[in-house]
Amino acid sequence: MYAVAQIDVDICSATSCRLCTQFCPESNTINYDIKRNTAYVAVDRCKGCEICVGICDNLAKHHAIKMVPITEIVEGYEMSKLGFHKF
């Protein structure tokens, strides 16, 4: 069991900083939904390094990302199942 990043949609959609999408070392793991104006995590790709948490807390100061055990995530977005969302 390991923890993956989870983004609070309410906090994230109030901003438009997009910093976590740029600082995540994994490609297409933190994606951005233009319609909802929020970042979201592909849970099957997240390796749980917590870089995005540091970026959101210290650089962006939004505190929108938390690490959550993978077993507690309900209906997480999985890229291998859904493919890249078409926004």
Partner: peptide, 12 residues
């Protein structure tokens, strides 16, 4: 700044 809105050339 567009990262996350297009499919990147790197896979897993």
């Amino acid at each position: 700044s567009e990262m996350g809105t297009f499919k990147e050339i790197i896979e897993e």
